[in-house]
Design a protein around this nucleic acid. Structure first.
Lengths: 244, 244
DNA sequence: GAGTGGTCTAGACCACGCA
DNA sequence: GCGTGGTCTAGACCACTCC
């Protein structure tokens, strides 16, 4: 009898997700024109500013492209494999790749910080830190060596079981830590003894090192990660938008 | 005497630039608290929504950090060297580095597309493309080999003089092309004969290859760039924000 | 000139952090 | 309970594209 009113919180997120899914699914093909902002506002029973927040999110994530005076158009999302822009864990990556993976935990212990770790985590030499060393096997080859360091003040307990599954699940869901942002740094360095021992390294001289400095919401640095990738298997994809 | 009224277009950009500069200059130190959104609105004689656009830009570019119920705080920008997130040309990079650089142009010609170029630029095998090959010398060493390919339909003329300075200046300012976005891909590959000939390669076996697919506003792909960096000199910095 | 996106205003209510 | 940022509304004017 009466009108059914559905209340949705975060209208702009709702619009964003709806269009992101439709584009991802291929329902909206590359080059297709989206309804105008005014039309969308009417469609969703909201205003232009709110629609614009949703569209700007779609632009930022490479789904669409806006042209002043013309309209918004769908981009070819499928042309780009999987962008690692943003943070992505090995577990998430493995799932996207859809390949058989295995993790071996070599170390889960509280150790004294050596000079490099002390510098990277901005603590004193000899201060205790959690050290987790894991090798990642993809398609039967040990390709990635992950060395993680956490501050005990923030992460009081850590076990091999946690290290074997997903440390991030533990940090975010169990400890309730809110990870805010990270600085990633990619370089190529000479392979170490450790690399040769824990990876299938086939006599390659160098290794790709991805250093990750992870910060919490209160801007404190709490984790330093070194992800060491075998040269021939490394690939990083970035989507960049020119700022005029 | 009357009141002087200064009209500024793009208030949010004005606020953004003012704060970005003050943070960059160190006038606002890491951890410093910004005025609240309402205060800023009053300061600049505008409204909260406009201030929020400026602050969100500062967040996106890693200058500040917002906390609901608390306020906006300055991040440590100087901890990160120069982020290559976004597009950056060699000329821009060299300026930021402040080191002596030199460019040698080895090739500026219209050639027939080989299979790789045809695939990368999405054209037919044998179609004509502009090929520009340049080596970049930094601090007296030839470290980067840039191989650029342009579609003649969009870039009709190209000379060695243009290649020696900045092709992007020419494209954007002379030809009026509007570059919209790019897909960047980083991998490590075996060094070629060409790499050894045109770079100071010191017997290194591999080379870092940064492939760049550049698109115009109308989403047409118009340029493919291969930037080949000597292993030991390569560095890529990315600033990633976790999406919750 | 009609339609589009870009910017801005002047309000409003909510959720969160903190004393 | 007060101040903060997060979201939203209902308008407005402008610059741009295209016919």
């Amino acid at each position: 009898m009466g009108t059914v009113i559905i209340v949705v919180k975060n209208i702009f997120l709702h619009i964003y997700k709806e269009y992101a899914e439709r584009i991802q699914a291929g329902e909206l093909e590359p080059g297709a024109k989206l309804p105008s902002e005014s039309e969308l506002a009417a469609d969703y029973g909201t205003t232009r500013e709110t629609v614009r927040k949703a569209l700007n999110l779609l632009v930022q994530n490479g789904y669409i492209h806006k042209m002043k005076g013309k309209g918004s158009y769908v981009l070819d999302v499928h042309r780009m494999d999987f962008p690692i822009t943003g943070l992505i864990s090995f577990k998430e990556m493995a799932e996207k790749l859809g390949k058989p993976t295995r993790t071996a935990v070599h170390q889960t212990a509280k150790v004294k910080a050596n000079p490099e770790i002390a510098r990277d985590l901005q603590i004193e030499l000899g201060d205790p830190v959690w050290e987790v060393i894991r090798s990642r096997e993809i398609d039967g080859e040990r390709i990635i060596l992950d060395k993680d360091y956490f501050l005990p003040a923030i992460v009081p307990k850590l076990t091999a079981e946690i290290a074997a599954t997903s440390i991030y699940d533990y940090l975010e869901n169990e400890l309730g830590l809110v990870i805010s942002y990270a600085k990633k740094e990619i370089s190529v360095e000479e392979a170490t003894e450790e690399d040769r021992k824990l990876l299938d390294y086939k006599g390659l001289s160098h290794i790709v090192v991805v250093r990750n400095f992870v910060y919490l919401e209160d801007t404190t640095l709490f984790e330093y990660t070194e992800s060491r990738h075998r040269l021939d298997k490394f690939r990083f994809v970035d989507f960049a938008r020119r700022v005029h």
